[in-house]
């Protein structure tokens, strides 16, 4: 049994287990810190920066998903500054690619959309990039739409760490970074793909979806994937 630690989150005294991250402790206690790249069961990468929190005694913001709890630590998960920064991060994500909710299969089931609503992002102050991106519908059952991808890499991790296939990775860098299938092959031609569909279920937006669905029909079942991942110990 891991040791119990006493911590404070937003002023509330709570218990956490040694080895837990701040985010895990917060979730266990019903504190939903915003996050997009985090998925239970997968190795945390600290990429979306939405789960940044203020930790007592540390003068910079720390990602809750990769910071372990320590005895006596006091964590602030919501403040004016955190909310402001999280809104900026969401605005940045929304302006990076082409997120048209009204025509998206994941409309109503999208984590990005849900967070934007929750944090009150009503307008985007940054110029939209409107990149010209493709849709890969070569796979018989699934479809990849780069226009909706937020590069959270949940698909990359679930494929390599849970399924063991490593079909996906990220190519190029900076703002040109993109999800890539093998050697930039069409998904339908990827020899390493087992068509297990875990990537689709792990995807927080409509970037990866099942084929043949209409607007609003793609609800993800990533809880199952998380259970499987934990079972296989993928992040340890």
């Amino acid at each position: 049994m891991p040791r119990k630690l006493s911590i404070r989150i937003d002023g509330q005294y709570l218990y956490a287990s040694e080895g837990q991250t701040i985010l895990e402790a917060a979730y266990a206690n019903g504190k939903p810190i915003p996050a997009l790249c985090y998925m239970k069961g997968l190795a945390a990468v600290g990429a979306c920066r939405l789960c940044l929190v203020e930790v007592s005694g540390v003068n910079r913001l720390l990602p809750a998903c990769t910071t372990a709890v320590q005895e006596g630590v006091s964590v602030i998960t919501e403040s004016e500054k955190l909310t402001r920064y999280r809104r900026i991060a969401l605005e940045l994500l929304l302006s990076e690619r082409n997120h048209y909710c009204a025509v998206c299969v994941s409309n109503g089931h999208c984590e990005l959309q849900a967070l934007a609503t929750r944090l009150g992002v009503v307008s985007v102050r940054y110029p939209y990039a409107y990149p010209k991106l493709s849709v890969d519908a070569t796979h018989p059952r699934f479809v990849l739409d780069h226009n909706r991808c937020i590069l959270c890499t949940r698909c990359v991790r679930v494929c390599s760490d849970v399924e063991g296939a490593h079909v996906w990775d990220i190519m190029s860098r900076g703002v040109n970074a993109r999800l890539v299938c093998e050697l930039e092959q069409a998904w339908g031609q990827a020899a390493s793909c087992t068509s297990c569909g875990k990537c689709v279920q792990a995807c927080p937006t409509g970037a990866l979806a099942e084929k043949g669905l209409a607007v609003e029909e793609m609800a993800k079942r990533n809880e199952n994937i998380s259970q499987l991942a934990l079972h296989r110990g993928a992040n340890r």
Binding site: G46, P127, I170, R173
Partner: peptide, 20 residues
């Protein structure tokens, strides 16, 4: 901006908007 690895949101997209 051109050397950003593209992993985290503020650096990848934020620098692109700052450049813009």
């Amino acid at each position: 901006h051109s050397e950003s690895c593209g992993k985290c949101v503020p650096c990848r997209i934020g620098l692109d908007k700052a450049l813009h």
